[in-house]
Amino acid sequence: MKLLTHNVLTSKCIRGVTVGYPLLIKATNVKVSEVEFKPDFVAKVLPKIEWDVLANAAESLGHWQNLPKELPNNYENDTDFLKKIHRVLLEVEVIQGELICPESGRKFPITNGIANMLLNEDEV
């Protein structure tokens, strides 16, 4: 599971949970695999991203690469910056671990990079 995906997931659909965002990450295996860098895509997707959430998630996995705490202005043409963000969004991947609902503590296991978001029949 990539950090881009983590950035757009919430556990709000669980009964009794009001925000459910961001999910906590507990990772036992993190992999960085090369993905073709397309600056246009990174620049396009950045406005949709919660910067703080991305920063905290990447930092907890040790892959923040000293990026600024706040999204800088005029990043569209800053290739070095976009490349680092590209790495955080698309190349860092949780292979084994858990996503945890911040309110209910419900855990969602990640196996072979695929998160299992199924609730049980008594939770729906």
């Binding site: 995906t5 997931l9 998160a115 299992n116 978001m117």
Partner: peptide, 11 residues
């Protein structure tokens, strides 16, 4: 994602 379409996890 392994997910049921009746429980939406997208923000």
């Amino acid at each position: 994602l392994i997910s049921d379409f009746t429980t939406i996890f997208w923000k």
